Amino acid sequence: MSRTIRNVALAGASGNVGAQVLKALLAVKEFNVTVLSRSPKSFPAGAQIKVVDFTSIEDLSTALIGQDAVIDTTSSPDVATPLRLIEAAAKAGVYRFITSDFGLDPELPGVYDLPVFSRKKASYEAVKKQAAENHMTYTLVSCGAFLDWCLSSGFAGLNFQSRTAWIFGDGNNVHPWTTLEDVGKATANVLLHPQETLNRPVYIYSVFMSQSQLFDIAKEVSGGEWTATYNDMEPIMQKALEDLRSGNISDAAFVVQIQYCLATKALAHPGKATTIV
């Protein structure tokens, strides 16, 4: 049976996703929001702050007693952090857990087989196990790529200063892009619709677009001449995986895996993403 969600705990509130989720939760005015923080920090007015030990399931579960929902927006590479949060939430009797996914469709074959998504895969498996054994419910928010962050960080392959584009494959694969603000709003809305979002991924997007379409808009807005390099992603992907197997761990090896997905229709496409934020 569904229930009304009022008390919400948020982990990772100082991150790119977490800050937008916190903003959206506070804007709703229907939630009592508690931020779980590793150390004393300043957060927007309206949020209660609890300093917790993220390495202790006991400390986390104590902090989560009385919470209706927990939202995990942590992004540390340590897979143990989300697993401890999930276990602690179940132990505290939390009704709904939103995992720190916020990415590609976890139901598409092959997505969670990639090393870059091992943390997300472990969280998904753990929360489904808790739902089956302890009746805690869950939701994943699948939003594709972060549109604004990908543009500002260069992750989208567009360098506005040098006017160069690094194109993934032919650049024509259409897939979801979502702004961080829209991710925050959608996450808050999940908790306003607990029955509709029960034990499943929720698919959202701000726009469906290919990298080439994004590149065309960038050229139109910025003006001037651009230089584009089109890249065969398969050998680049295989090199990244080989680097990981040989212990040559780098951020680039993980970035390439996501860019490979965005270029591959089987791993990133509109599909079920039918909810416009």
Rank of each mutant, 00 (worst) to 15 (best):
L151M: 15
N7M: 13
L114W: 08
I204C: 02
V202S: 12
K272D: 14
S206A: 04
V277K: 05
N159S: 13
A122R: 11
G223T: 11
I249T: 15
A47C: 09
R119W: 02
F97C: 07
G224E: 08
H193G: 02
A186G: 11
A268D: 02
L36W: 03
Y112S: 11
V116G: 10
E133S: 15
Y95C: 09
L10Y: 02
N199H: 12
N159W: 07
I236F: 15
E87V: 01
I217C: 12
D182K: 10
S56Q: 08
L241E: 07
S210A: 11
I167T: 12
D72Y: 00
I258P: 00
A266G: 09
I57E: 13
G144Q: 06
V17D: 00
G46H: 06
V255R: 15
V35T: 03
N199Q: 03
G144F: 02
K121E: 10
P77S: 05
A268V: 01
S210Y: 07
N32Q: 15
E220K: 15
K50V: 06
S61A: 05
V255I: 13
P109H: 12
A9P: 08
V21M: 00
G184R: 02
L267E: 07
F215K: 13
T34A: 04
F117M: 11
Y205G: 06
T73N: 00
F43V: 06
N189D: 14
A11R: 01
P44S: 05
D105L: 06
L85Q: 07
A45D: 13
R200Y: 01
N189P: 04
V202R: 10
M209W: 03
G93R: 11
Q213G: 14
I276A: 15
P109G: 14
T275C: 06
A132K: 12
E125I: 14
R119G: 02
P270Q: 08
T187R: 00
R6W: 11
L147Y: 14
Q211Y: 05
T197E: 00
S37L: 13
L36H: 04
F31R: 03
Q161L: 14
L26N: 05
K23V: 00
V116Y: 12
A92K: 05
R6V: 14
F102P: 03
E30S: 10
E225W: 07
T55F: 04
A47S: 09
G271P: 06
R163Y: 09
T264C: 06
K120N: 05
K29S: 01
A90Y: 02
N189Q: 15
L147H: 09
A27W: 13
I57W: 04
R163K: 15
L244Y: 01
R119Q: 02
A80H: 13
V174K: 11
V174C: 06
C261K: 04
R200P: 00
D105N: 12
S56I: 04
I204N: 00
F215A: 13
I5G: 04
D148C: 06
M237N: 11
D59G: 03
S210K: 09
A88G: 02
T187E: 00
F215P: 12
V79K: 15
A19V: 12
